[in-house]
Amino acid sequence: MSRLFFAICRRDIRLSWSQGSSASMVIAFFIIVVSLFPLGVGPEQNMLGRISVGVIWVAALLACLLSLDRIFQADYEDGSLDQFALSPLPLELVVLAKSLSHWLTTALPLIIITPLLGLLMNLANDAYLPLMMAMLIGSPALSLIGTIGAALTISIRRGGVLLSLLILPLYVPILIFGVMSVDGLRLGENAPMLFLGAFSLFSLALTPWVAAAAIRLGLD
């Protein structure tokens, strides 16, 4: 069972890095969006430092959103999703494998590149580690909830805008607690971080069932 699970992960990761796919573009998008802010707001260091955490989180949210249609759309269009629905691995686990590969190819690179952008945004010295930590804990929820949205919009052509409208409101708690937990960690306050973790765990429990049900409906 786990062999099949990881076979799907391997395939999706290879696909997302192969030519013409968007994994590297999402990272470029993340960098460009964040670097727009020093240009737009002006080089005033205090101001940049104050908004840095929020800006990086919002940019990560948008970058994640941009890559969501990759999770199921191509598989739906070329018929692979039909085959997955008939495969020996339950659709719930297929969904989870795809979610995991999305996290590995999108969220993880964003987290790794974050210190560079922190430099650009004059992030406070003691906020680097808390920010990366908060992103590490909150980003699984981004991928998982995004997977639900992607599953709900598979049969809609050019469903990108609808997907954004559907998913962004659900990302709001992650954004709020994500930004709060950075300050929290710097001041030794753990509660926001725990909320963030709870949100990730909750979406982990929910996503496989909801997304699999949405796909079954979408395949009609």
Partner: peptide, 19 residues
């Protein structure tokens, strides 16, 4: 039963161009 006993192939080939 479905995954064991049914082999389904419709109009879409379910192939990945990249592979």
């Amino acid at each position: 039963w479905r995954s064991r006993s049914i082999c389904y192939l419709a109009h879409k080939n379910a192939l990945k161009n990249e592979f």
